[in-house]
Computed example of a mutant assay.
Amino acid sequence: MHTTNYKNTFIEVAEDCPVSVAEIPPVKRNKTLANIQLEMVLENPYKYTSDEVLFECFAIKNEIGKDERDEARRNFFSKGQPCFRSSALGKRYGFGVHSDAEGKIAFFPVESEEYQNFLKDDSVKKVKAMRTKRAK
């Protein structure tokens, strides 16, 4: 089984993130993955792991019923999945992602004091969200 979970890690916004103040992703006709991720985690900080959030988003988007989820989860994680480094929240909308020692996640706006504290905390591993554009 593959995993997207990090432990004691902070995913910083991408180097080419276009905002200096976090934005809520706009809702179009249907909620985007970023909308679902943000709702789940902002309402429940440190309740879910990355794997739980990403699979729930997949299940919602693909209308997978509760009785089909165990098998769908096994299939979903039978191959590698993109982690939160590739999420639009860190690439476009200005949210950092902290994973605690248990792998549970919370989001922090780039302009927040908490975000800055994670950057200064040497006990937390730092990685950046993926760039939207290739470096030249």
Rank of each mutant, 00 (worst) to 15 (best):
T4M: 03
N5S: 00
T9H: 01
T9C: 02
F10K: 04
V13T: 12
A14V: 00
A14Q: 00
E15F: 03
E15S: 12
E15V: 02
C17K: 03
P18G: 00
P18V: 00
V19E: 02
S20W: 04
S20I: 09
V21C: 09
V21I: 14
V21M: 06
E23Q: 10
E23W: 01
I24T: 14
V27P: 01
K28E: 06
K28R: 05
K28G: 07
R29K: 07
R29D: 12
K31V: 02
K31Q: 07
A34C: 15
A34V: 11
N35Y: 10
N35E: 04
Q37H: 14
L38C: 09
E39S: 14
E39H: 10
E39T: 15
M40C: 08
V41A: 07
V41F: 06
V41T: 13
L42E: 13
N44W: 07
P45Q: 08
Y46L: 15
Y48M: 05
T49N: 07
T49S: 07
T49W: 11
D51E: 11
D51F: 13
E52A: 15
L54D: 10
L54E: 14
F55E: 04
F55Y: 13
E56Y: 14
E56C: 06
C57Y: 08
C57V: 15
F58S: 08
A59D: 09
I60F: 02
I60R: 10
N62L: 08
E63P: 00
I64Q: 03
I64E: 00
G65N: 09
K66P: 05
D67K: 12
R69E: 13
E71A: 05
A72K: 02
A72G: 03
A72T: 02
A72I: 02
R73A: 12
R73E: 07
N75W: 00
F76L: 09
K79D: 10
G80N: 11
G80Y: 05
G80V: 02
G80W: 09
C83Q: 05
C83S: 14
F84C: 05
R85H: 06
A88F: 12
G90T: 09
R92Q: 04
R92G: 00
R92D: 01
Y93E: 04
F95I: 10
F95Q: 06
H98Q: 11
H98F: 11
S99T: 03
D100W: 06
D100F: 01
E102K: 12
E102N: 09
G103Q: 03
I105T: 06
I105H: 04
F107V: 02
F108S: 15
P109T: 14
V110Y: 13
E111D: 15
E111K: 15
S112V: 13
E113T: 15
E113P: 10
Y115T: 14
Y115G: 14
Q116D: 08
Q116S: 13
N117D: 14
L119M: 13
K120P: 03
D121M: 03
D122M: 01
D122R: 06
S123A: 12
K125I: 11
K125S: 08
K126F: 07
K126L: 06
V127R: 11
V127P: 15
K128I: 02
A129C: 07
A129R: 07
M130A: 14
M130L: 13
T132H: 01
T132D: 03
T132V: 10
R134F: 06
